[in-house]
């Protein structure tokens, strides 16, 4: 203990819009906190509630999902599906006592690099406000749910 808290932020982002924006943020040399770990998806419609819960189980302090702007989804409504699922997952996190504020959905267009940088800053601030994910600081469990089998 006593270590400086550096939040771990998981970002599940869509390749068509937000990932392009994040890429452009790099080209534009925009500064944003290095706490974010990006997982690129073909579409945020792939995001399942179980992925979000597993991310927190694995110790992520906050999780952000970011897809295309509403109406701009490459697959028409993947980002709308993700929006609904994130809203549902927030209630599940509230239920179990971790708090839904640790999870947030964003819609960032491919050309909107500054918005991506702002979103990461926002979530980093929130991670500092909320403090570390208590699950990440507990001892590893003897056994885990066999969710790997579910994914197979």
């Amino acid at each position: 203990m006593g270590e400086k808290y550096e939040p771990k932020i998981l970002a599940l982002i869509c390749t068509y819009c937000t990932y392009t924006a994040a890429d452009m943020a790099g080209s534009m040399r925009l500064q944003y906190p290095p706490n974010v770990r990006v997982i690129k998806l073909l579409c945020t419609g792939k995001v399942d509630v179980i992925y979000l819960l597993e991310a927190f189980k694995a110790g992520a302090d906050v999780v952000m999902v970011s897809g295309c702007e509403i109406g701009d989804c490459h697959f028409l409504e993947g980002n709308l599906r993700a929006k609904e699922r994130v809203a549902h997952a927030k209630t599940l996190l509230d239920d179990l006592g971790l708090g839904g504020d640790r999870l947030e959905m964003f819609h960032i267009g491919a050309s909107d690099a500054p918005k991506w940088a702002e979103a990461v800053k926002l979530m980093t601030r929130r991670a500092h406000e909320l403090g570390p994910n208590p699950l990440g600081r507990k001892k590893p469990r003897a056994a885990q749910t066999n969710i790997e089998e579910l994914r197979a």
């Binding site: 189980k57 599940l92 179990l96 699950l135 469990r141 003897a142 056994a143 749910t145 969710i147």
Partner: peptide, 21 residues
């Protein structure tokens, strides 16, 4: 989803519980 939720709630509550599906 339920198993993951229960697992996290047990960890938060310092209960030694294991959930499988």
């Amino acid at each position: 989803i339920l198993a993951a939720q229960l697992d996290m709630a047990a960890t938060l509550g310092d209960r030694e519980q294991v959930f499988s599906v």
